[in-house]
Design a protein around this nucleic acid. Sequence first.
DNA 1: CTATAAGCGAGACGGTACGTCCCGTCTTAGA
DNA 2: TCTAAGACGGGACGTACCGTCTCGCTTATAG
Lengths: 211, 211, 211, 211
Amino acid sequence: MKESVPSPRPRGRPRSASVRVAVHAAARRLLREKGYGGVTMEGLARTAGVGKPTLYRWWPTKAALYLELYREGAPGVFQVPDHGRLADDLDQLVRGVAAALSEPLQREAMAGMFAEAQLHPETFPEFQAGLLGMRRQVLLRILARAQARGELPGDLDPLLFGDLLFGPLIYRLLVRHAPLDDDFARRVVEQVLQQSRTRPPWRWVRRAPTP
Amino acid sequence: MKESVPSPRPRGRPRSASVRVAVHAAARRLLREKGYGGVTMEGLARTAGVGKPTLYRWWPTKAALYLELYREGAPGVFQVPDHGRLADDLDQLVRGVAAALSEPLQREAMAGMFAEAQLHPETFPEFQAGLLGMRRQVLLRILARAQARGELPGDLDPLLFGDLLFGPLIYRLLVRHAPLDDDFARRVVEQVLQQSRTRPPWRWVRRAPTP
Amino acid sequence: MKESVPSPRPRGRPRSASVRVAVHAAARRLLREKGYGGVTMEGLARTAGVGKPTLYRWWPTKAALYLELYREGAPGVFQVPDHGRLADDLDQLVRGVAAALSEPLQREAMAGMFAEAQLHPETFPEFQAGLLGMRRQVLLRILARAQARGELPGDLDPLLFGDLLFGPLIYRLLVRHAPLDDDFARRVVEQVLQQSRTRPPWRWVRRAPTP
Amino acid sequence: MKESVPSPRPRGRPRSASVRVAVHAAARRLLREKGYGGVTMEGLARTAGVGKPTLYRWWPTKAALYLELYREGAPGVFQVPDHGRLADDLDQLVRGVAAALSEPLQREAMAGMFAEAQLHPETFPEFQAGLLGMRRQVLLRILARAQARGELPGDLDPLLFGDLLFGPLIYRLLVRHAPLDDDFARRVVEQVLQQSRTRPPWRWVRRAPTP
DNA sequence: CTATAAGCGAGACGGTACGTCCCGTCTTAGA
DNA sequence: TCTAAGACGGGACGTACCGTCTCGCTTATAG
C-alpha cells in the first residue's frame, strides 16, 4: 500500500531515539525483576530516566509498550509460511509461537497482556487487533491454501480450528503446570491434523440448529 | 478431619452471617456494573456497608472472594460424573464448565481470576489449587476409570489430554471472538475423543528426549 | 450559639493529633526555607512524613493551612479591645497587627495568602472571610462604640476608614521598601485619628451621585 | 549611558513585529478569560500562535509581559504633573492611578503582578523597579517641588506619605470590598492633604528612638 | 548573488507538582 | 471478640506546565 502524498513532513524537534532504547531496556529489566504486574508507568519512567509525559506520549498504556516489545522480539511469528503442505505450515506457525513463548520474558509479557486485556477493557481492542488478529490472519491464509490444495474440506470452521490449535498453548501459558516447549507444540499440531484426516464421522461445520 | 474436642467454644461476638450475604451481593452487583477490573476492596466495603478490616479478615483478596462466589455458583462442576462411558463423563464435565461460563457474571469472574493470577503471583496458588486443581482431579478420576475399562490406553498423558480439552474453552473465554456455548463444548469433546480412537500413529505419551 | 444536639458522636478512628503537629512544623520549616511560593503540597507531605491524601483531607489548600497557622500565631488580633477611648482601641488593634507581621514567618505567610487569593480565585472567599472579614468585624465594633461615645461623627464611612488604616500596613507588607514596625503602625493610627478630629471641611460619607 | 558607536548594525533576521502584536493580543484575551493566575506561558504561546522559545526570548516571565502591557496601557501615570499646587499634582497622580485600575484588565494585571512578586521572588525586583519605583520617583518630584514652594514642611517623611497615599488604593485593589473609583481616590488625597495642613501636633518625621 | 546569521513555528524532552484513587493497616466505640 | 467507621502512610495514576533543546524554514544584511 503505497502512500501517494509525499509524507506530511514532520515538524518540530524529531523524536529522540534514545528514549525508545532506554524505555525498552527499562521495560525488559523491570519485567524480569518484578513481573508484568509489578511494572508501573511511574517505575518505567524512573528506571529509564525519562519524564512521565514522554512515556505517555508514545505508549499510552503499559500494554502498548509490551505489545511493541513482543512483536519486535518475535517478528517471524507474523509471517505466513508456505511449504506447500499444511502440516509443515502449521508446524512452523505453532512451533514458532511456542519458541517465542519459551523465552521467559516474552512469556511473562504475553501472559501479562492477556491478563491486562481482561482487567482493563480499554486495552482489549489493541491487544486483539495487534496480536491475536494478526495471528488469525496468518492461520486463515494457511488454511485457505490447504483447502485450495484439497488438504482440508471446504466447510471447515476456521474459528474452531484456531481454538483447538492455540487454545492448549495459551492454557499452558497461563496455567503453567507443564512446559510450553517445542515438543508440546508439535504434539498439539499432530493432534489437530490427525483429526482432520479421519474426517467422518466428524462434523467440522457448525451444526444447524436442530428444531 | 473431625474435631474430637467438644469444640473450643469461641468467645466474643460470633461472626455475623449478614456480612457474608451483603458482601456477596455487593460483589455480584459491582462485577456486573464495573467488570472484574473495576471492582476494588474499597468499593466492595462501601457497597456492602461493611468495614474494610472485616472484609480483609474473611477474604484477604478480591480473588478469594470471587473464587468462593464462583464455586458456589457452579457446584456441579466439581463432582465426578460416572456414566460408565468416557464420552458421557467428559461430555458432562466439559459441557458443565461451558454452561457455568455461559452465565455472564461467572464468565467475567473466571476471566478476572485468570487475569489476576497472572498479575499478582501471590494469588496464583489459591487460584490454581482451588479451581484448576479441583477440575484436574475430576478429570484424572474420569480418565483413570476409562483406562480401567479399557477405553483409553494406559500410557496416555493426562496433562496433554486436559490441555486439549480445556485449552480451547479458556481461549474462547479470554479472547471472546466466538460464543462459548454448549455446541462448542460438545464439538471440542468430540474432537479430542475422536483423536483417542484413531490412535496409531499418534503418540500420547511424552516422548523420551532423543539423544 | 449553643449546639443543642448532643453532638454527632464521631465514629471511626479519631483524627491523629500528631499529623497536625507534624504538618504545622513542616509548614513553618518550609516557609522559612523556601518562602510561601516555594512550598508545595507534595513537599509538605514529604517533609511532615504524612500521606498526601491525609494532607488534603484536612487542608484542601496551601492557603487553608497557612491561614490556620496565622490565626494560631496571632490570636489576640481578633479580639475586640475596649479601653473606652478610640485612640487606645485603634492603637491596640493596628499595633497588634503590625506586631504579628513583624515576625518574619507570619509576614511571609500573610503576604503569600494575599498573593494566592489573587491568583487562585477559589481561595479568595476563605481568605476574605477567615482573615479580612474578622478584622473588619473588630474594627466595626470599635468604631460603633466610639460613635456611641461621640468620638466619631455618625455619618462616618467605616469602609474608607478601614482602608486608610490597614491599607498602608498591607502596602508595606507587600512592597517591603521600609520596615513594618510598631512605630510605623503608631504613626498611621495617629494620622487617621488626626483626620477625624479636624472634621470640616472633610466629607466622611460617600457622596451622593451628582445628577 | 549613551552608545557612542553608531550602532552595531544587527545581523540576521530582524525581530518580527507581528509576534509582539499577537502575544499582546493573546495576553489580553487570556487575562480576560482566565484571570492572571490562569494564564500560562504555554497557553500564551498556543493562543498567539508563537513558539515557546520566541516567547521566552522576549518576555522571560509572565510578569514581564504584563508589566509591559500595563505600562503601555497607562502611560500618563508615569509623567510628572506640575500644576504649581500640591493638591492638584497629587490629584492628578492618584486619580490617574485609580483611573488606570478602573479598567478591569489593568486591575487584574496589576493585582496579578503584585501577587506574583510575592510568590516568585525572582520577579520582585523588576516589578519593584519597573512599576513601584517609577511611581515613587514621580511622587518624590511632586513632594520636592511642594517643599520648595513651602507647601510642605522640610522634614516630611516621603516614604510614609507615599504609603498613606497609595496603600489604601492597593488595599482596595487586592481586597475588592468596595469600588476603586475616582471618588475614592479623591477622598484619599483629600484626607492625606488635610493631615499635612493641620500639622501640630503631628509628627511627620520618624521619631528619634527615645532613650 | 550568495553566504551567514538570527528569528521563528513546532514540538520533543526531563522534570515537578498537581489532586485523586486505592491499597492494606491501624485505632477507635459500640454491639 | 467481632463489627462499622474511618484515619493513616504509602504509592501509582494520568495531566498540566515549566523552561530548555533541537529541528527546518524564513528573512534579512554582508560580503
